[in-house]
Design a protein around this nucleic acid. Structure first.
Lengths: 211, 211, 211, 211
DNA sequence: CATGAATGAGGTTTCATTCAT
DNA sequence: TATGAATGAAACCTCATTCAT
C-alpha cells in the first residue's frame, strides 16, 4: 500500500472553476459556525458539510481529512493575528518603550477581541491538532518580529530578548483569554491593556535594560 | 448525543473498604500512565482499566462515566496546587509585598514544575471536559486565598483586587506552561520566578497601591 | 500517533469465556455464508456480523480489521488441505511412483472437492488479501512434503525436484479448479485423477528419473 | 495488425474519429500504468483519467462504467493471446503430435511471457469482473481452435477432445502463471515448455489415442 | 464533446457503556 | 463485587457516477 505517508495535512486542490471557490468558502464559514454552536468535540465532517449545504464528498475534495480542515482554519486565523502583530512591530521600531508596548499590546489584544467568539473557538482547535506544523510557524514569525523590534531599544541586552519575548507572548495570550472568558466588557479591555503595559515595562526594564 | 444535563460528574462512591481504595488508586495511576504514554486522544476507558489491572466494569463502579474519571483526575491534581497555594497565601498575610510575591510564585511554580510531565498531561484534560463544574471551584478557592492575602497589604484598594488576582493567575499559568514546554532547564525556572516577581510587583503597585 | 504499525493481521484475542467461543464460531460460519451467497465483492463486515447474529463491535473484538478476518478464513481452510496432503505424502514415502501419485492426487483433489463451494469461495479470497503472510507458508509446507516424498523415489535427480513440485501444484490447482467450475459430476472427478496421474508420471519420468 | 487478426477475435467496436482513438488509447495505457503501479485495489476511474490526461467525464463517454473499462482491458489482452493461439492452431493442423504441441505451447507461453508484468496485472482483473460475459467467449474460441486442431490427429477419439482441451488450458495457464510469479529466468521458460510438452503428449496419448 | 465539481450511499472502524455470569 | 463479552450509534472517509457549464 501507499498508505505509509504520514497523511497529508495540507488542502487538497486549489479550485479552478468559480463554483468551487464558493464551496470552499461555504465550508470555511460552516466550520466556524459549527465550532461556535457545537464546540470542537461535536464538530464532525458531516455536520460541517451539512451546514455548508454541500456533501461530505465535496468537503473531502478540498481537505484530505478532518485534521487538514481544522489546520486550515487555524492557519487562516493565526495569520490574521500574525499579520496584525507584524505591522505593529515594524511601525514601532525605534520608538520609546512606552509607545512600543502600547502599539504591540493594542494590536494583539484588538486582533483577539475583535472577533472574540471566533478567537475562543479557534483556541479550542489548538489542542485538537498536531499543530506543530504551522502553528508554531506563525508564532515563530511573531517572535522574530518582536525580537527585532525590541532590538531597536537603546541599551538593550540582545541575548536576553528571546526569553522576554516568550514571556510577553505567554502573558498576553493568557491574560487576553482570561478577559475574553470574563465576557470582556469594554472597560475591562482597556484595563487589560494598561495592566499589560505596566507589566511589560517592568519586565523589560528588569530584564533588558541597564538604566 | 447532545449533552443532556444530568449525568453525574462526581465519583460514584467514596471508597470505604481497603480493596476499593487500592482499586481507585490503581485507576488513578493508570490514567496518568496512559495520558503520558498515549495522550488524551488515545485515552480510552478500556485502556485505562487494562493498565490498572482491573476490568472496565470495575472502573465504571467507581466513576459513572469517562468524564467523571477525567474530572476526578483534574480535581485531584488541582487540589495539590490549590493546597500548596493556600498554605503559601496564609503564611504570607501581612508580609511586605516582595516576600508575599516570592512566596506565592514559589509555591505555584514549584507545584507545577515538580511533576512537569504530569502537569502537562493534566493540562491536556482541561480542554476535554466541560470544566465548568469544579475546575473553577478550585480556582475560585485560590482566588479567595489570593484576595485575602492581598487584602493584608497596607493601603490597598480592595475593589480592584479581583482583577489583579485574575491577571496573576493567568500570567503564572501561561508563563509556567511556556517554560515547561521549553523543557525548563533549572536556570529558566529561577529566571521565570524573578521575572514574575518583577511583573507582579509592577502590577500591584500600578493597580492596587497608592504609593 | 501509534498508528504507524503496518496494521496487525492476526486475530485479536483468544476468547476466555465460553460465550465468546460461540461468537467466534458464529462469525466464522457467517463469513462463509456471506462468501457463498454474495461473493467477496459484497462481503462487508456489517453483513457478516448481521448474519452471525452479533454486532459489528463483536467482530472487531476478535479481528482487528476486515483483512484479518479474511486471512483467518483462508488460513483455516488451507490448513485442512495442507494437513491432508501432508498425511498423504508421509504415507507414500518409498512407494512406487504410481501409488505415490495416486495417493497425493487423491488427497488433494478430494480435499478440494469435498466442499466444492467453500473451496471456490475461499479461492476468491486469495486475490483479496495481501496473502504473503501465511498463504505461501502453507504452500511452502506442502512443497516440502512433496519434495521429501519424491526424494524417496529410486534414481531421482534431487536438484530437479523443486521445479517438478511447482509444476505439480500449479497443475493440480488449475485443473481441479477447472473441474470444479464445470460442476464436477463424479465421473469427471475420477477422470481428472486419472489424467493427472498420467501427466505427473510423464512429468516425473521426463524430469526426475534416468530410467 | 488488424488485418492479420481473424475476424472472430476482432475488437468489438473500433473508434471512428481520430481524436477518439487517441483518447481511448490513452485510457488503455493509463489503466495498465495504474494497474502496475497501484494494483487493482487502488484503481479508481479518477486516477485512470488523471494518468490518461483526460477528465473522468471523458472516460465515461467511452465506457459506461468501471466494469466495462476493466472488461475491455481484459478483452483486448485476451484477444492477443487468442489470436496468437488461433494462428498456431491453424498452422498445426495435420502435423504430428510433437510439432503440434510444440507450436501451441510456444504460442501460448510466449504470448504471456512477452509482457509478463502486464499479464500479471491483467490477471488481477479477472477476479474483479463478473467475467462470465466475454472472458469465456475468448476462451471458447481458443477451445474451438484447439479442438479442431486435435481433431486432425489420426486415430483420435473425438468425443474425448473437450476434456483434454480443458486440461491443456488449465495446465498451461496455471503453470505459466507459476513461472511468471517465480520471476521466470529465461531458462525456466524453456524448461516449462519442455515439461508441458511431455505432459501434454502423455495426456493426449492416454486420453485421445488408441496407439 | 470535454470538463471536473458535486454527490451520497455505503464501507470500515472505534469506544463508552451495559449486564449476564 | 468483579469480570469482560457484547452492543451499536456514530465518526471518518472513498469513489463510481452524474450533469451543469
Amino acid at each position: 500500500m501507499t498508505n505509509t505517508m504520514p497523511k497529508s495535512l495540507k488542502p487538497r486542490k486549489t479550485p479552478i472553476q468559480e463554483r468551487s471557490g464558493q464551496t470552499v468558502e461555504a465550508i470555511f464559514e460552516a466550520t466556524i459556525q459549527v465550532l461556535l454552536k457545537d464546540g470542537v468535540k461535536n464538530l464532525t465532517t458531516t455536520r460541517v458539510a451539512e451546514r455548508a449545504g454541500v456533501s461530505v464528498g465535496s468537503l473531502y475534495q478540498y481537505y484530505p481529512n478532518k485534521e487538514a480542515l481544522l489546520i486550515a482554519m487555524l492557519e487562516k486565523h493565526l495569520d490574521i493575528v500574525g499579520a496584525t502583530c507584524q505591522i505593529a512591530c515594524r511601525e514601532s521600531h525605534n520608538l520609546p518603550l512606552d509607545a512600543m508596548m502600547a502599539n504591540i499590546i493594542d494590536a494583539f489584544v484588538d486582533a483577539k477581541m475583535k472577533k472574540k467568539d471566533i478567537s475562543l473557538a479557534i483556541a479550542e482547535l489548538i489542542s485538537e491538532v498536531s499543530c506543530v506544523p504551522m502553528y508554531t510557524q506563525v508564532v515563530k514569525q511573531i517572535e522574530i518580529e518582536l525580537t527585532t523590534m525590541l532590538g531597536t531599544l537603546p541599551g538593550v541586552q540582545t541575548e536576553k530578548i528571546p526569553f522576554v519575548v516568550s514571556m510577553m507572548l505567554a502573558t498576553m495570550g493568557g491574560a487576553t483569554k482570561m478577559v475574553m472568558d470574563r465576557m470582556s466588557p469594554p472597560h475591562l479591555v482597556k484595563r487589560l491593556k494598561q495592566t499589560l503595559q505596566a507589566m511589560f515595562t517592568a519586565l523589560i526594564k528588569t530584564e533588558l535594560l541597564f538604566t
